[in-house]
C-alpha cells in the first residue's frame, strides 16, 4: 500500500470520517448563544454609541416612553435604555473578569492541590472547603470594603470567591485523570510531568471545566448585580443592573419599567449563559458527539 503523508491537523474537522460534524450544535447551545449575543451586542454598542449621556437628566422624572426615550426615564430623569446598555457592559465585564480570575487562580490552585501530598494536600483541601462554605457575597463585601467600591474590586472579589469552587473541582478532576492508564502510559513513554499535564490532563478536564466556568459566569453576573444592589459595585454614573433595580424599588408600583427592564435583561443573560453551558456539555466530549448521531 502507498503511504502518503498523513495530514494530522488536530484542529480541523475530518470531513470524511468523523461520525458527527463538529458544525452540528445542539439547539440548547444555539438558544443560549442567541440570548447571550443579545446582551453582548448591547454591551458592545454601549462602547461606541448611547442614546443619551449617562448623566443626562434632561428627561422628565419617571417619564414614560417617548421623546427619544425608548423605555422612559428614571426618577432622576435619566434615560432608562441608556442605563440598560451601560449595565449590559458592566454585567459582561463582571462576568468575564470574574471568570478569568476564577479560572486563573482556581486552575493553578486545583492542579497544585491535586499534585500535593500529605499535609499540604489536607491543608489545601480544608482551605478550599472553608472558602466555599463562606458565602460569595459576604466574601465579596469584605474585599470591596477593604478596597474601594469599584467594578474591578467587585470583579476581583467575585473571582476570588469563585476560584475556590473552581479549584476544588479542578483538584478532583485532575486526581481522577491522573489515576487513568493513559497518564501512566504517557509517563512510561517518557513524557515529563509538565507535558503530561498540558497534553493529557488539562484537555481531559477541559470539557467539565469549561461548562463549570460558563455556569460561574452566570453566577458572577448575579453576584455583581447583588453587590451593586447593596451599593458596593461600580460607582455612578456607570449604571449597573443591580443598582437600577435598587433605585427603581421605591417607585416599582408607579413606574414598573425601571425595575422590570434590568431584571429581565439579567435573566436573559444568566439563562443564556446557562444554556450555553448545557449545550457545551453535549458538544465538547467526542464520545457524546458520537452518541448524538
Amino acid at each position: 500500500m502507498t503511504l502518503p503523508a498523513a495530514p494530522l491537523k488536530e484542529t480541523e474537522p475530518t470531513e470524511s470520517n468523523a461520525p458527527v460534524s463538529r458544525r452540528r450544535r445542539s439547539a440548547t447551545l444555539w438558544a443560549g448563544c442567541s440570548l447571550t449575543a443579545l446582551i453582548v451586542l448591547l454591551a458592545l454598542l454601549s462602547l461606541v454609541w448611547l442614546p443619551f449621556d449617562t448623566d443626562d437628566t434632561s428627561g422628565g422624572r419617571l417619564a414614560g416612553p417617548g421623546d427619544g426615550h425608548l423605555l422612559g426615564t428614571d426618577k432622576l430623569g435619566r434615560d432608562l435604555f441608556t442605563q440598560l446598555m451601560t449595565g449590559a457592559r458592566i454585567a459582561v465585564q463582571a462576568g468575564l473578569g470574574s471568570v478569568a480570575v476564577a479560572a486563573l487562580v482556581g486552575v493553578t490552585l486545583g492542579v497544585l492541590a491535586a499534585f500535593a501530598q500529605g499535609w499540604l494536600d489536607d491543608t489545601l483541601a480544608a482551605f478550599l472547603d472553608i472558602l466555599i462554605a463562606f458565602p460569595t457575597l459576604l466574601l465579596a463585601m469584605l474585599v470591596v470594603a477593604a478596597r474601594s467600591a469599584t467594578l474591578s474590586s467587585a470583579i476581583l472579589a467575585i473571582g476570588l470567591a469563585q476560584s475556590a469552587v473552581v479549584a476544588r473541582l479542578v483538584r478532583i478532576l485532575v486526581k481522577r485523570v491522573l489515576a487513568r492508564d493513559y497518564v501512566t502510559a504517557a509517563r512510561t513513554s517518557g513524557t515529563s510531568w509538565p507535558r503530561t499535564v498540558a497534553g493529557h490532563v488539562l484537555p481531559n478536564i477541559w470539557p467539565t471545566l469549561v461548562v463549570n466556568l460558563a455556569l460561574q459566569f452566570g453566577l458572577a453576573v448575579l453576584a455583581e448585580a447583588g453587590l451593586s444592589y447593596l451599593g458596593l459595585g461600580a460607582p455612578p454614573p456607570n449604571a449597573s443592573w443591580g443598582r437600577m433595580l435598587q433605585e427603581a424599588q421605591a417607585t416599582f408600583t408607579t413606574a414598573p419599567a425601571g425595575a422590570l427592564a434590568p431584571g429581565i435583561l439579567l435573566v436573559v443573560l444568566v439563562v443564556g449563559v446557562n444554556l450555553i453551558a448545557d449545550g457545551l456539555r453535549d458538544t465538547l466530549d467526542p464520545a457524546t458527539r458520537r452518541r448524538r448521531t
Binding site: 494530522l8 488536530e10 492508564d181 502510559a185 481531559n204 477541559w206 467526542p286 464520545a287
Partner: peptide
C-alpha cells in the same frame, strides 16, 4: 483506558 480519549491517535503516537 491506556489511550487518551480526547486525543487523535496519530498525535498520541507522534508525541
Amino acid at each position: 483506558t491506556a489511550l487518551d480519549p480526547l486525543m487523535r491517535m496519530g498525535r498520541q503516537i507522534a508525541e
